[in-house]
Design a binder for these strands. Structure first.
Length: 335
DNA sequence: GGCTGAGTCCTGTACAGTGA
DNA sequence: TCACTGTACAGGACTCAGCC
C-alpha cells in the first residue's frame, strides 16, 4: 500500500462572496503530491499547475501567498487534463491511500472533479490520514491543531524549500508523516464526508478501540436525524452491546450538537455526541461518536445539562419580572 | 479577506406535560 | 385553568486554529 500525500493550492472569487460561483467556491490552481511506500519512504512526486477557467483573476491573498500569476498558470493545462494525469500517477484504486495536512483538500478535490466533470470514482467511504491529526495525537493532546510550518519547526526538520507551493508542502507533510510514531496512531484514520452513505446498508461505521464513529445516510429534514433509531442507539465501544441510557440525548445550545450518556455493565460509562451536518446536496446527516468515559465524565455531561436548564429557568424568571414591571408601570401611568 | 470546522454561549419562541 | 417546567428549535455571536 502506497500513501499519496496530497496538497492543493486553490483560488477563490477575487471580488468577494457576492460574485462567487456557488458550485465552485474554490478553484484548484495547483496539485502537488508525494507518493511514499509502506515504510513512508519517498517513491515519486507529482506537480502540476492548473489554468483556471472560473475565476480569471487571483484573489489578493492567493496571489500573495503563492506568488503565482494568471499568465503563468495559463501556460498549464485545464483542470480535467491535470487531474486525469494525477489519478493515473496515483495508481490503481485500492493500491493507495490519501494523506493530507488538515481535512479540506480531499473535499475540494472531489468538488472540483464534480464541477469539471472529471470521471474518477472516489472510494466510498473515502478513508484517509489527516496527518495534522496524527501529529497532534503523537506530540500533543490529539485535539490541538498546529500549522505545517510549526510542526516542521518543532521537529527540527530542515526548511530548505519554501512553503505554500503544493508540491513542497506535500514534501514537508510527507516528512512529518515519516517522523510520527505511525504504529501507535495508524488506526486513527479519518473519513471524508463529501459523499455520505446513500442508504441504511451503506452507512459508515468505524471502531477505533476506545471510541466508535458512525456516519448516517442523508435525510431531507434536519429533525429526522435524531428521530432515527440507528442515530439514537448507543452501544459499548468495547463489546458492542447496547447500553442502558442514563442521560438521554439533549441538544446543547443549538440543534447542531447532541449529547447523551449510556452505561455498559461490563465496561462502564459511554458518552455520545451527535454532530449534525449538511452536505453539498443539501441533505442532513449525523456523525455519532461514542467514547468510553468514567463517572466524572458522565457527571460533567449531567452537570452541563443541569446548568443549561437552570440558565433557561433564570431567563424565564427575568423575562416574567420584566413584563410584570412594565404592566405595573403602564397601570400607574393610566391612573 | 474569506472560508471551514469544532465548540461554546446566549436570547427568544413554541409546545406539551404536570400538578395545584 | 393556570403557572411552571422540560424540551426542541431558530438564529446569532464568538473563539480558536487552520486553510487558500
Amino acid at each position: 500500500m502506497n500513501y499519496i500525500i496530497l496538497d492543493l493550492e486553490w483560488n477563490q472569487c477575487p471580488s468577494g462572496k457576492k460574485n462567487e460561483n456557488k458550485d465552485l467556491k474554490f478553484e484548484i490552481i495547483e496539485i502537488g503530491a508525494v507518493k511514499v511506500d509502506d515504510n513512508r519512504q519517498y517513491v515519486s512526486e507529482f506537480h502540476e499547475f492548473v489554468s483556471p477557467t472560473v475565476y480569471r483573476a487571483l484573489h489578493k491573498i492567493t496571489k500573495d501567498m503563492t506568488k503565482l500569476t494568471i499568465s503563468e498558470l495559463d501556460k498549464s493545462d485545464k483542470f480535467n487534463e491535470a487531474a486525469t494525469r494525477f489519478f493515473d500517477w496515483c495508481g490503481s484504486d485500492g493500491d493507495y491511500m490519501f494523506g493530507t495536512w488538515g481535512s479540506m483538500d480531499l473535499a475540494e478535490l472531489q468538488n472540483n472533479c464534480k464541477y469539471f466533470g472529471v470521471d474518477h470514482k472516489f472510494e466510498k467511504p473515502l478513508v484517509f490520514y489527516d496527518i495534522q491529526k496524527l501529529y497532534s495525537l503523537c506530540f500533543s493532546d490529539g485535539k490541538t491543531r498546529v500549522s505545517l510550518e510549526t510542526a516542521i519547526d518543532e521537529q527540527k526538520i530542515n526548511k530548505e524549500i519554501p512553503f505554500h507551493t503544493a508540491v513542497y508542502d506535500a514534501i514537508y507533510t510527507a516528512r512529518v508523516f515519516e517522523v510520527i510514531d505511525f504504529e501507535r496512531v495508524k488506526r486513527y484514520t479519518s473519513v471524508d464526508t463529501y459523499c455520505i452513505p446513500d442508504n441504511k446498508e451503506e452507512e459508515f461505521f468505524f471502531n477505533y478501540g476506545t471510541y466508535t464513529k458512525y456516519i448516517s445516510r442523508g435525510f431531507p429534514e434536519r429533525e429526522m436525524i435524531m428521530k432515527d433509531s440507528r442515530v439514537r442507539s448507543m452501544h459499548c465501544c468495547v463489546c458492542g452491546r447496547n447500553v442502558k441510557r442514563v442521560i438521554k440525548w439533549y441538544s446543547i445550545g443549538n440543534q447542531r450538537m447532541y449529547c447523551g450518556v449510556g452505561f455498559c455493565e461490563q465496561h462502564g460509562y459511554v458518552k455520545g455526541k451527535v454532530k449534525v451536518r449538511m452536505t453539498h446536496d443539501n441533505l442532513w446527516y449525523g456523525i455519532k461518536i461514542l467514547k468510553l468515559t468514567d463517572e466524572e465524565g458522565a457527571v460533567q455531561i449531567r452537570d452541563r445539562q443541569i446548568i443549561n436548564r437552570e440558565k433557561r429557568r433564570e431567563r424565564r424568571h427575568r423575562e416574567m419580572e420584566r413584563r410584570l414591571k412594565e404592566a405595573a408601570e403602564s397601570e400607574s401611568e393610566t391612573t
